[in-house]
Each structure stands twice: as structure tokens, then as C-alpha cells.
Write a protein that binds this DNA or RNA. Structure first.
Length: 443
RNA sequence: CGGAGUAUAGCUCAGCCUGGUAGAGCGCUUGCUUCGGGAGCAAGAGGUCGUUGGUUCGAAUCCAGCUACUCCGACCA
């Protein structure tokens, strides 16, 4: 992408409405624009990040055996009346009336819809286990949205729903998602700690929140330090196997959010030097809730004994749009965002210090062309801005690697390769710069 | 929903107290000089001062209503 043809409306000053660093940086880097309280347009750079996050979530869901579909944003009220949540959900649910005076709603979640899909098509235990997921915009009319997309009213969420015949099988489905989540967050460069969670209004008796640690996190968390650096299960994990040992190993140590925190137990179970009190951001939440929806909505399957029973369900959410902000909270410095390569909007940028210099432009074009051809997500800054302004903007936007091409370097036969995270600046031939990027870019 | 603020140029803000017809910096346009860390000079464009009403000879300024946004609390991926 040539920056001269791109749309990157970066701001030099911080808009006054932004309180936390991720919101400030997202506005300044031209990722989002606010429309109303908790409602945002995703500008091109922000959309790229969102799509990278989505892609990772999708790959790891598929790896764990989940199947993607897409449910609507606007739903009819009927199913919610059936489950009993139309009254129970309260004002957070945005209710809409259509031209025929029918009651509609903008979905805050999708248990009812998916349960309806399931009961329409699945009748036998032989079609189980099943895990269906989608990545869709949701709306919750929060009393007080804040912190940009961290707690918006409209947000993009991945939610998966598992269906099993027995509680034991349902627990295995839960363990699969548990492991998939750890791999998912790890791939985004995050250290996520699973914490025993309150099941809240969704109900059920088994639930974990996935928390990433960040000073600006909205909830206080308490855990054993060992958990923070525990490696994820890994992409070669066998999702067909019994994952209970894996799950048990990762939930044996103390980890709790404020609501579930038991100070006495914390002190009893965790040696003092390993006690970690920090702040965290919830980026995922998984629930096992059995027949909470399948019973009232009569989503029954016939078992091998010929008897019908409500299907055992669980639901598994990832806050996709929230993750964009959460990653920034966990990875930034005074100059701006530091994207982990896997979610960076562009993995590299070629920066022409002198677009009016033919020799400089020739080197830029050849590097840019080679990187494009190799499938690297590369931005080419061919604009006539001054060097300082260019570098500042690209550092603000967090591009992981810059290939800086200037007249001095070109005369000496070198370009500069700058690493955003470490700040290192290395001179090398254009050829070597291309090689280093093609070799390391994971796409 | 309770409490507290804010609303003036694209952005950050001043002006309001003490009423007299709107400013700065950055950004934008044009030209020249510059060009390796957010350039300099010159000339420009850009605002029904959130909105409605009231007071007044006269309102960005004083008063009231409304709306939007932000912050603190209860709620949440």
C-alpha cells in the first residue's frame, strides 16, 4: 500500500475525550473515529488490526474443532420470550420496533438464536459433539460506555456454543475451548491468565475469565506469579485427546478476579514471593451452563438409549474489538503503539526520506515491490513529508519494522532497518533488508 | 439513574468573571527557501461561538430550558 493513496488520518494532538492510553493512541494513529457514546467507525488502519485479530481467533477456533456460521445482528423478540430472557435482560438490551410494530432487538448475545438453529437440525446424539461459532457485532446499551472500544456499546465478539449429550462430554468441550483460548492469546503476543469467574446473569457452574495484565486494567486480579509465564498448550495440542489433565494443570494454582477473590485462601495457598496483585483486562470468558437454554427452548437430542434429553451447552466469548485496545494497553511506549507482528496493521514500512530523489525512489520501489511479491503486509511511505514527521507517524502507528531509505544511505549502498520494539537501527544492503523481512514475516 | 464537568476554526485551547459583533498554536491551501527526527519566510482559506428561548440599544459573554460528550458511582466481552 502506498501511503500517498492510503487513508491514515493521524492526529498530532490527543483528543480531549480520551482518558486511557489505548483510546488516545487509537485516535491519534487514525484507527477509529467516535460516532456516539461507545460507538465507533473503524478507519482503515484499525480495521486491518481487527481483521488480523479475527483471523487468529478463527484459525484457533477451527483448530479446536469449532465450525463457523453467521447469525444476524437484529433478532426477533420471540426466542427471547421463550428463554425467559426478554424480561430478564433489562435495559442493556437495545429494543427496536419495526414498521409492523413487531418487537425486535439488537443482539447483546446469541444463545437463543444458536439454540434455535441447533434444535431445528440436530436430533440425535450421533451428530454430537458440535461447536458452532460466529464473529459478529453486538450491542449492549451500557449505562456508561468508556475507554474507547475497550468498553463500547457496539463491539465485535467471537462467540462459540458447544453442544454435547452428557455433562462429561460438555466439560471436554469446555476444556478444548480453554486450551484454544490460551493458544489464541499467545499468538497475539499476550500473556493471558485464566481465572475462576463468577457466572453472572448467564448462569452455570463452570466459568473462567481470561485476563491480560495491564496497569490500566479495570479489575483487580490476584494470582500466583507462576501462571503468568506458563507456556500455552501449543499449536500441536491434540484436541481429540482427553484435555482434563491439561486443564487441571493450568487451574491448580490460585487465580481470581476481585469478585471471586478470597484473601485468606490466597495467603494460605500462594507463597508470599509468588503472590501477584495486579490489574487486568478481561479478553475472553467461557461458561458451561448445561441445559439453561436447551431445557426451556426444548433443544433435545435422542441418546443411544432412545431417550430424549436437553442438550448440554457451553458458550465461549472473545472480545475481538476489545482486544485491539487491550493489546495496545499491554504494548506501547511514549512514542506510540508497539504492535506484536501477528496483529500489526502492516508488518513493515518502506520509508522514503526523499521522494523527489530518483535514486532513493528507485531503491524504495524495488524493496517495496519485492516485499509485496513475497506477501509481506508492507506500507510504502512515498509522501513528501519531512523525515521527522514520517518517522513519528509510523512509530505512533506501531509498524514493527521500518526500512528507511535516504540519499546518504543510497550513495553508500545501504538502507536502515529499524525495529519498533527494541529501537535498534541496523544498516544493510537493500537485498539483505528484503531477506530479513521475508524470512521473519509470519504473514 | 444519582453526582460533577464540558460544548468557541479540522485538533488543542484562550476570550466569558467586568456584554460592544471572535483569537492563538498546530493542521490545511499557494509560492519561495529547505529537507536524516514533527522546518523557515510570505500570502491565504476556514467559525450561524451546541441548540432554543429570555434579559438588553447590543449576548460567545448574563439567565432558563433542551441536546450531545466526558469524568466519579451502580452494570458489563
Amino acid at each position: 500500500m502506498r501511503l500517498s493513496r492510503y487513508f491514515l488520518p493521524a492526529l498530532r494532538e490527543t483528543p480531549s475525550e480520551a482518558q486511557i492510553v489505548s483510546h488516545q493512541l487509537m485516535l491519534r494513529a487514525g484507527m477509529i473515529k467516535q460516532n456516539g457514546a461507545g460507538i465507533y467507525t473503524w478507519l482503515p488502519l484499525g480495521l486491518r488490526v481487527l481483521q488480523k485479530i479475527e483471523a487468529i481467533v478463527r484459525e484457533e477456533q477451527e483448530r479446536a474443532g469449532a465450525v463457523e456460521l453467521l447469525m444476524p445482528t437484529i433478532q426477533q423478540a420471540e426466542l427471547w420470550k421463550e428463554s425467559g430472557r426478554y424480561e430478564a435482560y433489562g435495559k442493556e438490551m437495545l429494543r427496536i420496533v419495526d414498521r409492523h410494530e413487531r418487537e425486535m432487538l439488537f443482539g447483546p448475545t446469541n444463545e437463543e438464536l444458536i439454540t434455535d438453529v441447533f434444535r431445528s437440525f440436530v436430533k440425535s446424539y450421533k451428530q454430537l459433539p458440535l461447536n458452532l461459532y460466529h464473529i459478529q457485532w453486538k450491542f449492549r446499551d451500557e449505562i456508561r460506555p468508556r475507554f474507547g472500544v475497550m468498553r463500547g456499546r457496539e463491539f465485535l465478539m467471537k462467540d462459540a456454543y458447544s453442544f454435547d449429550l452428557t455433562p462429561d462430554a460438555a466439560r471436554q468441550a469446555y476444556y478444548r475451548m480453554f486450551c484454544a483460548y490460551l493458544n489464541t492469546f499467545s499468538r497475539m503476543g499476550l500473556k493471558a491468565v485464566p481465572m475462576r469467574a463468577d457466572t453472572g446473569p448467564i448462569g452455570g457452574d463452570l466459568s473462567h475469565e481470561f485476563i491480560i495484565l495491564a496497569d490500566t486494567g479495570e479489575s483487580a486480579v490476584f494470582c500466583d506469579r507462576e501462571l503468568v509465564d506458563m507456556a500455552p498448550p501449543g499449536l500441536d495440542l491434540d484436541f481429540q485427546a482427553d484435555l482434563k489433565p491439561e486443564f487441571d494443570r493450568r487451574t491448580a494454582l490460585y487465580a481470581a478476579t476481585e469478585e471471586m477473590h478470597d484473601p485468606a485462601r490466597f495467603e494460605r495457598e500462594v507463597p508470599e514471593e509468588r503472590r501477584l496483585s495486579a490489574r487486568g483486562i478481561e479478553v475472553g470468558h467461557i461458561f458451561y451452563f448445561g441445559a439453561k437454554y436447551s431445557a426451556p427452548m426444548r433443544a433435545h437430542v435422542t441418546g443411544p438409549d432412545g431417550k430424549d434429553a436437553p442438550v448440554e451447552m457451553g458458550s465461549y466469548g472473545v472480545g475481538v474489538s476489545r482486544l485491539a485496545a487491550a493489546i495496545i494497553e499491554a504494548s506501547h511506549d511514549e512514542r506510540g503503539i508497539i504492535w506484536p507482528a501477528a496483529v500489526a496493521p502492516f508488518t513493515a514500512a518502506v520509508v522514503s526520506l526523499r521522494p523527489d530523489d530518483a535514486a532513493v525512489s528507485a531503491v524504495c520501489e524495488s524493496v517495496y515491490g519485492a516485499l509485496l511479491k513475497a506477501g509481506v503486509d508492507v506500507l510504502y511511505d512515498d509522501t513528501p513529508e519531512r523525515p521527522g514527521a514520517k518517522l513519528s507517524t509510523l512509530e505512533l502507528a506501531g509498524v514493527p519494522t521500518l526500512v528507511v531509505v535516504g540519499p546518504k544511505g543510497v550513495k553508500a549502498g545501504v538502507v536502515e532497518v529499524r525495529d519498533r520494539a527494541t529501537g535498534s537501527v541496523v544498516e544493510m544492503s537493500a537485498e539483505a533488508a528484503i531477506q530479513s523481512l521475508v524470512g521473519t514475516s509470519g504473514g
